[in-house]
Structures are given as C-alpha cells and as structure tokens.
Simulated scan of single mutants.
Amino acid sequence: MDYAAALLAQTRAFGELFRVGDPELAIPTCPEWNLNQLFRHFGRGNRWSAQIVADQMDGPLDPREVAGGKPPAETTAAIDWLNDGAQVVLDAVAKTGPDTPVWTFLGPRPASWWVRRRLHEATVHRADAALALGGEFTLALELAADGIGELLDLLPAVVARNADALPLADGQSVHLHATDDGLGSAGEWTIGRPTGTDTVRWAHEHGKATVALRGCARDLFLVATRRVPVADTDITVFGDAAVWQKWVEHTAF
C-alpha cells in the first residue's frame, strides 16, 4: 500500500468535510470536542510527528512547542495548512531517512512508522467528522483492513496505559472476520491473552475465540476504533458479547 499517497488523500478528504461543516459542530465520538477542535488536533498532530522525525527525537514533543501548530483563522487558508502538514510529515521522513530510528509510542521505530500512524489518524478523524455531519463514511477495503491491523500493532502501548485493567481476562480471545471478497488471511484478526500472561497478542489467522465478530471491513474498523457500537452495524457477534464490550472499554488509544 502507498501510505504516503493515502495520507495525502485522506487528509484532503478530511479538509473538505471541515470546509462544509459548522466549526462549532459537536463531535459525539470525541466528547467535549467540536469540529474546529478536531481539525486543529489532527492538523497539529501531523506537524508534531514531523518535528519528532525531523529532529530525530528520542522522546515525545510537548504539543505547545510544535512549529506552525496553529491553523489560520480563514477556512481556505486553514485547509491549506492542514494539507501542507501532511506533506511536512512525508518531507521529514524523506530528509531524515525512512529507516532512521525515532521516538514512537512503542519505543524507537523507523521514521517511516509515522506515515502509517498519521494515515490512520486521518481515517479515524475523517470518520469522526463524517459521522457528526450525518454523512456516509466510506473507506477503501485495503485501508479499512490495514487500519485494524495498525490499531492492533499499538496494543503494547494500549496495554501499558491500561495495566490495571487489561482488555482481556486470562485465556480470553477476540476474533474479527471481514466478509469482503479479496482480503484472504489479511481479513482475519485473532487477538488473545495467553493463559498465565499479562500480554495481549494478535495474528492474521482463523480460529475459535471467546467472542467473534463477522462483518465488512469498514464496519469492523469503525467498531474496533470505538467510532460506532456493534448494534449500529450489520456485524454478527458470536460467543460472549460481554468480552467484546470489555475489549472496547479498555482499548482507547
């Protein structure tokens, strides 16, 4: 997948939602935020990550220290600022070197790690805006599937943040199965907590689980990222639905 091109495209699509929306519109999936705050958060986040890459930082950056982190007041200029910020990420990675290690939520990773991370920050926040505006949220099959995998790749950081309330009990597991044609094994995710451990692991594989969700990749992406409840989708749940509910409640990132 061309993560760079997808980041630019998803950022542009998010900007167009901002163009037609009321800046004061409440964002139900991001409580206490309005559309303007969501826009600023995402746009500043691109420049924040770009600065981490450009400076080859070994720790997080204070958001207040992000260069150019405040958008212009005028809408078109603000959207230009948003789109430019996505390109700033790509330019920083290219200049630093995609394989150069920099700080991430998971410890040192190649600078190119941030391109995929910012891409799926874009897909999730575009969903936030689209749902708040009452419009249809569509997402290419490959992007939806990759977004689920990227979220699961963040599990070590999620588990560390929720160390006192792990998302799965000892020996429990979750299986997600995308029903779309063409994904093959890339459309199945099995997540489990091996018996006697405090770790959560995942793999692209089919198998029985404590709870299983079966539906299209787009719907699975939205429920996995906590954007919509299962009840608002066509997903079918098999097994212990309470395990899924606990998973959702303890995997905020």
Rank of each mutant, 00 (worst) to 15 (best):
R109N: 08
L106K: 02
L155V: 06
A111M: 07
W114G: 04
L155F: 12
T138W: 01
D84S: 14
V159T: 14
G134W: 08
A160W: 02
P110V: 06
L90R: 07
P71A: 11
E65I: 00
D99E: 15
L61A: 02
D153R: 13
T104P: 07
A169M: 11
P156W: 04
V88S: 10
T76P: 00
P101T: 01
L133C: 08
L90E: 00
V66Y: 06
V158H: 00
G97A: 07
V158G: 01
T75I: 12
A129H: 08
R64G: 15
N46C: 13
P156Y: 08
G107T: 00
L119V: 11
N83H: 09
L106E: 10
I148F: 00
P156E: 05
P71R: 04
L155C: 02
H120E: 05
G171Y: 06
E65F: 01
R161Y: 12
A78W: 08
D91C: 04
V124Q: 13
D55F: 04
I52M: 12
P63A: 11
P156T: 06
G147Q: 09
L131V: 12
S49V: 13
V53H: 12
P156I: 10
S49D: 14
I148M: 11
A140E: 15
A130Q: 15
I79N: 08
V93D: 04
T76V: 09
A94T: 15
I79W: 07
D58W: 01
P156H: 02
F137Q: 15
F137C: 06
T104D: 05
P108D: 05
M57Q: 06
D91L: 05
G135N: 12
G68Q: 02
A144V: 02
D153K: 05
A92Y: 05
T100W: 03
A163P: 03
D164N: 14
A86D: 10
G69I: 03
D164C: 02
E150R: 05
L90D: 02
A54I: 00
V88L: 10
T104Y: 03
G68R: 09
L61H: 04
A67S: 09
V102Y: 10
D146L: 08
P63T: 11
T138K: 13
V93Y: 13
A144H: 07
L139Y: 03
N162H: 14
P72L: 00
A73F: 04
D164W: 05
P63V: 10
D164Q: 14
L106T: 04
G107M: 02
I79S: 09
F137I: 00
A54N: 00
T104Q: 04
